[in-house]
Design a binder for these strands. Structure first.
Length: 768
DNA sequence: GAATGGTGTAGGTGA
DNA sequence: TACACCATTC
């Protein structure tokens, strides 16, 4: 053992060390949030190589996200001071894809098969429905059905329709969808896994080859495996394979994608000699944050059971902010971030976590207005943009002209005079002959029988694709991409700015060329174009915004899993949004939402804010909202309210201490305009828990930072009760101050515009 | 065949 | 709000 690895392993705590050095066939590591899960996995791999003398090519490590795979690879490299050759680290999808590329013949695929993403998939289904004259079935519902069946390992022929007409219908669509994919050499995400699992089942010799090769299989985020992934693992693991699974049932958040937490229990049952190791010491968060997370997750019934602990201090209370609406919420968060940065803290250690991507908008606007750099993960990804997908479709046709999905996308993009009528002829012909659209097109052009105008338009398209294919032969990838973007007329088309976004789209197309020039094909077996297209499908592109820079991180709770930040804002924590409306009706889904909240809370190392808005605009409609039940599930002693609607901070549960505060809390209902007048706890819980029974603590007058604000002095000679004039809002009376120095904020009750908090420096108030 | 405007609708997470 | 889809017009 090298000294450094030995020392590294000595530094682990006993259960971590036990996991890393566990002998025997199977181990299940139940690893709580922040308990050093990735550390265990990477040390385990280093230990296998250095101590157990395993060859790197005997090790397979599977993760769920590309980000996790990249991190694991990097950390193994650091531990071993080199990048081990032959070690397989990747996502389930990435590894399945690699297998299918290597064994396309055995898998019954054409060598040039292309990957269908969910958008392609829906378009294909839409086409199938149109063929059937079905305009009532929703493509999304069909896609969901097919994907769910694939997640369960079922093909169309396996489906037991039990005489139910709708199920029969869906099964029929699945059959047609399978046929269409088969014809075009197209493989969707689920198919990657399904087919590679069938490879194990139908090609035992091949399976045995990999069983002999991969003596060690390690699985990350095991709680998120679905039926098919689990079957795939069980098939690959032979009697001599050592299977090392790491997971946390409390962080299972992909049920909607078929994940089965039950697989953890199943694993224990099916491998009787499995060694179960629990990692419960948390090294990440303060005691307060952990207690809050523990209390929240205790409301779930279906748990393996574990309790995180930490020997770190309790730290600050969790701050709760009730915003008036989503703009106020964003403004509050961004102000907090400004203060954090002003105090010399890195912005890159701040994350804003939300339930859904659409929520990023208000925060982006505020951050942009205040010129704070930020980075948004997820959402509209680079490879999902319309113009990029167009360009990729041309490239897909170059790689495989039978790819009907790509054909349909660009046959008339940019418009070249090929309309519905002409396309319908093609489609019909294709249906009748079982050929691809491209094959039919070639045949029709040769045989004549097309109206002159259509023939020349189609001829132009065929010529273009032919030229792209010829030009691409042996050319560097970048030249192929340039050619597809330019010769297709795509760039010129978008440059004409058909929708007011032309400039950005042209930039994106240039960026695609740039991406191609930087692309490194790591699989020598694969031609660069196919490798690039697969990369585009499997890794949806990097986050938007400035990479590497010290930026605030914006992402969904789902993409935050596995990450940690010194300061976290958990925003939009409202009933109907988080937990989402539909999940409220189903206990299992509600529990998954709660696990998502648990994931969010446990991302924070030092400081956690939870915010919600009392009024939120959804689908262009403003609706009242109320605090999420998850807030109520956090013990009140861990929460401190921040400046609830113009009053001072107070510990949650404390009664307002009269004076100006009282009015703000009295009264019921919400959505009544102006700053709200409702206690943050909903009626149903008032008087239930002991939160309200505790003796009321005196309201603490403090800013969010715990620094007592100075009163009027230092605030430009203004004081409470003074009449002032504002450029936009007119005349008003100062009712409160908060903060000090450049962060001083002042509350003014305006005659015509209600009560507002203003940054003193910015507001330009003059005595009236 | 292409462009434009109006209408209706909306679940949200991701490889 | 934002986008997809349809009907109308050029």
């Amino acid at each position: 053992m090298s000294m450094s690895l030995e020392r590294q392993i000595e530094r682990l705590n006993p259960p971590q060390r036990e996991a890393v050095t566990a002998p025997g066939q199977t181990a299940l590591v139940v690893a709580g949030a922040g308990s050093g899960k990735t550390r265990v996995l990477t040390h385990r791999i280093a230990w296998l190589i250095e101590v157990e003398r395993a060859a790197p090519q005997e090790i397979l490590a599977v993760t769920f996200t590309n980000k996790a795979a990249a991190e694991m690879r990097e950390r193994i490299g650091e531990l071993l001071h080199m990048s081990p050759r032959g070690l397989w680290v990747g996502t389930f999808h990435g590894i399945a894809h690699r297998l299918l590329r290597a064994h396309w013949r055995e898998a019954g695929l054409p060598e040039t098969f292309q990957i269908l993403d969910s958008d392609d998939q829906q378009r294909l289904i839409k086409r199938l429905l149109r063929e059937l004259g079905d305009d009532t079935t929703k493509p999304a519902a069909v896609a969901a059905f097919i994907n769910a069946r694939k997640d369960e390992g079922q093909r169309a022929r396996h489906i037991d329709t039990q005489g139910f007409a709708d199920r029969e219908r869906l099964a029929e669509l699945y059959r047609r969808y399978e046929a269409a994919c088969e014809r075009g050499g197209m493989v969707d995400f689920g198919e990657l896994l399904l087919r590679s699992n069938e490879l194990w089942v139908q090609q035992p010799a091949l399976r045995d080859h990999y069983r002999r090769r991969f003596r060690h299989i390690l699985v990350d985020e095991f709680q998120d495996t679905n039926t098919l992934q689990y079957a795939w693992l069980r098939n690959l693991a032979g009697p001599d394979t050592s299977l090392f699974a790491v997971g946390d049932d409390d962080q299972s958040i992909y049920g909607w994608r078929g994940a089965r937490v039950e697989n953890m229990r199943e694993f224990e049952r099916q491998f009787p000699d499995v060694k179960v190791i629990r990692l419960e010491q948390n090294y990440r968060s303060t005691g307060t944050i952990l207690s809050a997370a523990n209390a929240l997750i205790a409301n779930n019934r279906e748990r393996l059971g574990k309790n995180l602990w930490s020997d770190a201090g309790s730290g600050e209370p969790i701050r709760l902010y009730a915003a008036y609406n989503e703009q106020d919420e964003a403004r509050f968060v961004v102000e907090q971030i400004e203060a954090w940065a002003a105090a010399g803290n890195p912005r890159g250690e701040v994350a804003i976590l939300y339930r859904s991507n659409a929520q990023s908008r208000a925060f982006e606007e505020q951050l942009m207005a205040r010129r704070i750099r930020y980075r948004v993960y997820g959402g509209q990804r680079f490879f999902d943009r319309a113009e990029i997908r167009d360009a990729l479709a041309y490239l897909r046709l170059v790689a495989n002209p039978n790819d009907d999905t790509a054909f349909e996308r660009v046959v008339n993009q940019p418009p070249r005079g090929i309309g519905d009528k002409t396309l319908e002829t093609l489609r019909e012909e294709a249906r009748a002959s079982g050929l691809s659209l491209w094959a039919v097109l070639t045949r029709l052009l040769e045989g004549g029988g097309l109206p002159g105008r259509a023939a020349s338009a189609l001829g132009g398209f065929a010529k273009l694709i032919g030229e792209l294919r010829a030009a691409g032969n042996g050319q560097p990838l970048m030249d192929q991409v340039t050619c597809a973007v330019e010769a297709s007329g795509l760039k010129a088309h978008y440059a004409k700015d058909p929708d007011g976004r032309g400039e950005g789209r042209v930039e994106n197309l240039d960026e695609l060329v740039n991406a191609a020039s930087l692309f490194v094909n790591e699989d020598a077996e694969l031609d660069p174009l196919t490798a690039f297209l697969s990369h585009a499908a499997l890794e949806a592109g990097d986050a938007q915004g400035e990479a590497g820079a010290d930026c605030v991180q914006l992402m969904t709770l789902h993409s935050a899993k596995g990450l940690e930040f010194r300061q976290v804002f958990l925003v939009g924590v409202e009933e109907g949004l988080f937990p989402s409306q539909r999940s409220v009706e189903e206990p299992a889904r509600l529990e998954e939402e709660r696990r998502l909240a648990y994931v969010g809370i446990t991302r924070a190392r030092e400081r956690l804010f939870i915010t919600y808005a009392e009024s939120r605009r959804i689908h262009g409609e403003t609706r009242p909202a109320m605090a999420s039940r998850f807030i109520e599930e956090i013990p009140a002693e861990h929460l401190t309210e921040v400046r609830l609607r113009g009053t001072v901070d107070r510990p949650v549960g404390a009664r307002p201490a009269g004076g100006a505060g009282r009015g703000a809390y009295s009264g019921g209902g919400f959505g009544g305009g102006g700053y709200g007048n409702r206690d943050w706890r909903s009626e149903r819980n008032a008087g239930r828990g002991n939160d309200f029974a505790r003796p009321a603590a005196p309201p603490r007058r403090e800013s969010a930072w715990g620094t007592p604000p100075k009163a009027a002095e230092g605030a430009g000679g203004l004081e409470v009760g003074q009449r002032v004039r504002h450029g936009k809002f007119g005349e008003g009376v100062i009712t409160d101050f908060e903060g000090q120095g450049p962060r001083t904020r002042v509350q003014v009750k305006f005659a015509g515009a209600g009560s507002k908090w203003l940054m003193l420096d910015m507001a330009g108030l003059t005595p009236a």
